[in-house]
Amino acid sequence: MANSKPRILNNNRDMVWSLIPLVIACLLIAGIASQCTLSPGGPTQGPIPNFDVNAAMQYDASELDFPIRNPKVPDDWTPNSGSRGSIAGDQGGDTSTVGYISDAGRYNRLTQSNASEDVLVPFAVGEPRFASGTQSIDGKEWVVYTQQSEEPVWVTDLGDVRLLITGSGSSEEFTTLAAATTDATPLTP
């Protein structure tokens, strides 16, 4: 027969003493696996992923049936991501997307597509949006889609391609990316 207290006599102190070895074991395992760090000052910016925007844009220009532009963004902007997609449907098409981190650390995403604007906007942001105004940049009209507590979306139609800009960037950064993209000459396949 075990020499332990009856269950009714166990209290919070007994529970704490039971949990201490479990917590120590968890911390030890996390430390060994290098999955636990202590950051008293809060989170810090990690390294921005390296992405070869020139090679990606050139490849997309050779594979897609619409002109692809490689904008000359400011030198302190870092390209960090890219993808290609396809939108099904009558007004659908292909997309080429590149993301940039600005000097202020904000994400700006450029999508180029031969899909119609009505299909491209919901595809890019995952939900329908309604136009709330326009922005004129270097003679091109950009349709602005804003929604409270959501990232803005800017779209322009260059005839054979639609350009869409979204992300957490400021309107100055959107303007910079819009001007750089419309000024860029389409890449040769």
Rank of each mutant, 00 (worst) to 15 (best):
A2C: 05
K5I: 02
K5M: 07
P6I: 06
R7A: 11
L9F: 11
L9M: 11
L9G: 03
L9N: 08
L9Y: 11
N10Y: 15
N11A: 09
R13E: 08
D14S: 07
D14K: 04
D14N: 12
M15R: 15
M15D: 11
V16P: 05
P21W: 14
P21F: 11
V23W: 09
V23R: 09
I24M: 15
I24V: 15
A25M: 15
L28F: 05
G31M: 07
A33Q: 11
S34C: 02
Q35W: 08
Q35N: 06
Q35A: 10
Q35E: 07
C36V: 15
T37W: 01
S39G: 04
S39P: 01
S39K: 01
G41S: 14
G42N: 03
T44D: 04
Q45A: 14
G46S: 08
P47V: 04
N50E: 13
V53I: 12
N54I: 09
N54Y: 05
A55F: 07
A56E: 10
A56I: 03
M57T: 05
M57H: 13
S62Y: 05
E63F: 08
L64C: 02
D65Q: 11
R69S: 02
N70P: 00
K72R: 03
D75G: 00
D76T: 01
P79I: 02
G82M: 08
R84L: 06
G85V: 02
S86K: 08
A88P: 00
G89R: 13
G89M: 10
D90A: 12
D90H: 07
D90L: 12
D90K: 12
Q91W: 09
D94Q: 12
T95G: 08
T95Y: 12
T97I: 04
V98I: 10
V98W: 02
G99W: 04
G99F: 05
Y100E: 00
I101C: 01
S102P: 02
A104R: 03
R106T: 10
R106N: 05
N108A: 06
Q112T: 01
Q112Y: 04
N114G: 10
A115S: 13
A115Y: 05
D118I: 03
L120I: 07
P122E: 04
F123P: 09
A124S: 14
V125A: 12
V125P: 12
P128E: 10
P128H: 06
R129K: 09
A131M: 12
S132K: 15
G133F: 15
Q135D: 10
D138S: 15
T146F: 04
T146S: 04
T146D: 08
Q147A: 11
Q148V: 12
S149C: 04
S149R: 13
P152S: 08
P152L: 10
W154S: 00
W154N: 00
V155P: 06
V155E: 02
V155I: 13
L158W: 06
G159Q: 03
G159P: 09
D160C: 07
D160F: 00
V161A: 15
R162N: 15
T166H: 12
G167D: 07
G167Q: 08
G169P: 09
S171L: 11
E172M: 10
E172Y: 13
F174M: 12
F174R: 10
T176V: 08
T176P: 02
L177V: 14
L177R: 05
A178N: 03
A179M: 08
A180F: 06
T181Y: 01
T181M: 01
T182N: 04
T182P: 01
D183W: 00
A184T: 00
T188F: 09
P189V: 00
P189L: 01
